[in-house]
Design a protein around this nucleic acid. Sequence first.
DNA 1: CGCGAGCTTGACGTTGTTCAACTAGAGTGG
DNA 2: CCACTCTAGTTGAACAACGTCAAGCTCGCG
Lengths: 233, 233
Amino acid sequence: MEAFINGYKCLDCKHCFRKSSTFSLLDEDDLARLDNARIEVSFKAGEIIYKQGTPLTHIVILNSGFGKIYLEGQNERNLILNYTKPFGMNGGIGIFIDERHLSSLRAVTDCEACFIEIGEFKDTLKRNPEFMDAYLREHSISILHTYRQLSILTQKNMEGRMAESLLYLDDNGFGNGSFKHIPKQDLAEFTAMTKESSIRVLKQFRDEGIIGIDNKRISILDKKALKQIAVHG
Amino acid sequence: MEAFINGYKCLDCKHCFRKSSTFSLLDEDDLARLDNARIEVSFKAGEIIYKQGTPLTHIVILNSGFGKIYLEGQNERNLILNYTKPFGMNGGIGIFIDERHLSSLRAVTDCEACFIEIGEFKDTLKRNPEFMDAYLREHSISILHTYRQLSILTQKNMEGRMAESLLYLDDNGFGNGSFKHIPKQDLAEFTAMTKESSIRVLKQFRDEGIIGIDNKRISILDKKALKQIAVHG
DNA sequence: CGCGAGCTTGACGTTGTTCAACTAGAGTGG
DNA sequence: CCACTCTAGTTGAACAACGTCAAGCTCGCG
């Protein structure tokens, strides 16, 4: 019964956590506590999972589907920081300051999300140094990516930025050499340019035989050329 | 004798740590251990304290003077992420990944730096949950700033970026309403524009009576106007 | 006094955005 | 089945923003 009502649990915690190298560091006892502090919610593609500025009360983990993490910037323009990774922890960066979300998360596909209450989550971090280490490693990688983005987005031209982004998506588990689900508008928001510009750059890449575009699916045809453009741009 | 040889200690650890709210969370025992894992080095203005990509073996704390934290980007162009804060912990973000520096730190003024070995530092973090909390809070604030920069640098025009930067510097302890030590080139690297552009924008601000420039010292005359430009730009 | 680093200026070219119009395809109700 | 609508995609022309280049300046310092 509960399984069909949004906001209640229908999955077994241990099952999910076994798939995550970070959560696999916890023992039965800690998993049980987290399970207790956990809520499941499903989201439809396009729905907002959490919004920048709102109170940060839970860590969010997507155990199916994926979402985009973005900053809401000047006059309705967004900047996509990254896409979620399976079983990655989202929304946690603000928990040590004012407990508000520093970014927004929106479902790209339909998603199943686990919400873990941050009080319990923090306690778990404190009780388990290895878990803390893994958590910090995850965040460090995210910061490394943010630094890279900062450097790329402020110093490379449109072609270079687009090449970097396509390579990043390809190298980080968005399909083998091709990906759907990412409209031109989103590629624009990931590369800090306008939708029109992203279309023009992609068209240029297509005309040069570097990528293929059919029916909203982008395929990388010449990765070497893309790398060349990424470095030089 | 030692006091005059660079790389040896001449300061009392407890003395310094008492000035830092983060380090004041540690007890005598932990402070003594850190003191043991500590080296002091002084740097002249302009010298590199650590360089992006090199092995990260120590956390660096500046107890006098200040430095700039920057990314080394495309063809010799740097991007200044931030300036150091007194007794702030620098260089630590990479300690949970591959133990290499993600950014560079360079002395802006003459500096006295403490280098704390990261093994001991990590152990101290693990032994002291409150210290860990404070450390994470510091880093979270730094990430928040990085997000802000990402948003500002990719979405605002030059006037907006410069206004934001001047306000940031003013609000974060770089003199009351005016600051030296930051040449036009550095303001350019902080706002992701060329030296020439930063000069032109500053000149425009001066002509509008918003700032004053004399003898390399920039003074904020009309903060309200600056805020207006920052929001709108 | 001369040197050099940082600063300043203007002319010019490139890059990327804006705006406006148009197209294609998916979903919806009659 | 067809018109209607909505969203994503596409295109071109005009324009603004910003960088590049080249030259000259200024001021502190040896």
